[in-house]
C-alpha cells in the first residue's frame, strides 16, 4: 500500500510526460520522410529569411529542412563533428579552410549582404563618408569608443580583417576598445549607450532602427566598400568525412539555392520594408 502511494508520485510524473508526448506528436512536430539538418548563422534566422525561403524548397523536393542558427564558429564545428548535413555561413576564409581539411565540399556562393560602420551622429572621429581603412585609422587614433563583438563570430572576424587592411594593430586591451561578447543587436545597444562606433551587418541595423522607432542613436557612417561585402555560401558536409550525412539532399539544397527560383526569392526578400540580401550564386 505504501509502495502504491509512492507509485502514485511516479505515475503522476509519468502521466505528465506521457500525455505531453502524445499532444506533441499530434502537433506540428511529426514531419516524416526526408529531413535535412542545416547549421547556419544567426543572421539568416533572425531576419526570418529561412522561414520565408525554405517552405518553397520543401514543397518542390519533399525534403524537410531543420536548421540550427548559431555563431559561424559553432556552425563550422557542428559540420566538422558530423552533426549537420549542410552549412549556410558567411566566413570565406574559415570556409575555405573547412573545405581544405576535407570536412566539406563544393562550397557555393549564394548571396551577400553588407556590413556597415555605425556611430553617433556627432561623429567625433569624423569618419562619415570616408573609405573603410581611413575610418578605422581615424577611430583608432582618436581613441573614440569602439564596441566589438569579441566573440569570434563572422562579424568579429570581418572587423579584425578591417583593422589589418587599415594597417592597424588589432586592439585588445585599449581602454576605448570594448568587447561585448554578445550578439550583434546587444552589441549595438552597448555602442549606443557608450556613444561609440561599431561594425554591424545591415540586417541587424535595420532591426535596430525599427526597434528605436526610426530615431536611432547610431547612424550608418561608412558603407558600400568592397571589403564590407558579406558573402554567404552553402557547403554540403563531405560524406567521405562523415559517412552518415545526407549528401544527396544537401546537394539538392545547394543547387536549389543557386537556382533561379531561390535567387529570385532572395532578391525580393524584405526586412521591415528594406531589401537585405543580394543574390550572386555561382552557376555550374
Amino acid at each position: 500500500m505504501i509502495m502504491g502511494r509512492i507509485l502514485i508520485l511516479f505515475v503522476f510524473f509519468a502521466l505528465l510526460s506521457g500525455s505531453l508526448i502524445l499532444t506533441a506528436s499530434s502537433g506540428k512536430a511529426g514531419e516524416t520522410g526526408r529531413k535535412l539538418l542545416m547549421a547556419t548563422t544567426t543572421s539568416t534566422d533572425n531576419t526570418s529569411l529561412l522561414d520565408y525561403l525554405m517552405p518553397s524548397f520543401t514543397t518542390k523536393t519533399g525534403i524537410g529542412i531543420q536548421w540550427i542558427s548559431t555563431g559561424t564558429g559553432k556552425a563550422l564545428k557542428l559540420g566538422e563533428n558530423c552533426d549537420v548535413d549542410v552549412l549556410l555561413v558567411h566566413a570565406p576564409q574559415a570556409e575555405i579552410a573547412f573545405v581544405n581539411k576535407g570536412y566539406g565540399m563544393e562550397r557555393r556562393k549564394i548571396m551577400y549582404n553588407d556590413f556597415v560602420l555605425i556611430g553617433p551622429s556627432e561623429d567625433p572621429a569624423n569618419i562619415k563618408g570616408r573609405r573603410v581603412s581611413e575610418a578605422m585609422q581615424a577611430i583608432g587614433s582618436s581613441a573614440d569608443a569602439f564596441v566589438s563583438r569579441g566573440d569570434n563570430s563572422g562579424t568579429n572576424k570581418k572587423e579584425r580583417t578591417l583593422w589589418k587592411l587599415a594597417h592597424m594593430p588589432i586592439p585588445d586591451q585599449e581602454t576605448w576598445y570594448k568587447q561585448s561578447g554578445q550578439g550583434m543587436l546587444a552589441t549595438i545597444h552597448v555602442a549606443a549607450e557608450l556613444k561609440g562606433y561599431t561594425l554591424t551587418d545591415r540586417g541587424t541595423y535595420i532591426k535596430y532602427e525599427s526597434v528605436a522607432d526610426n530615431m536611432p542613436a547610431l547612424n550608418i557612417l561608412v558603407e558600400g566598400d568592397e571589403v564590407l561585402l558579406n558573402q554567404y555560401s552553402v557547403i554540403p558536409v563531405n560524406p567521405k568525412h562523415c559517412s552518415g550525412v545526407k549528401y544527396k539532399d544537401a546537394k539538392a539544397l545547394s543547387a536549389w539555392l543557386a537556382g533561379p527560383e531561390a535567387q529570385g526569392l532572395i532578391r525580393e526578400f524584405k526586412l521591415l520594408g528594406k531589401h537585405l540580401f543580394i543574390p550572386n550564386a555561382d552557376q555550374e
Binding site: F13, A14, L16, G18, L20, A24, G27
Partner: peptide
C-alpha cells in the same frame, strides 16, 4: 502554433527528465 510547439517541447523534455531523475 509556434508558442504552443515551444510549450510542448519544454514540457516533454522536462517531464521526461523529471520522470527519469525521480525514478
Amino acid at each position: 502554433p509556434a508558442t504552443y510547439s515551444a510549450i510542448s517541447s519544454t514540457l516533454r523534455a522536462s517531464g521526461l527528465a523529471m520522470a527519469a531523475s525521480l525514478l
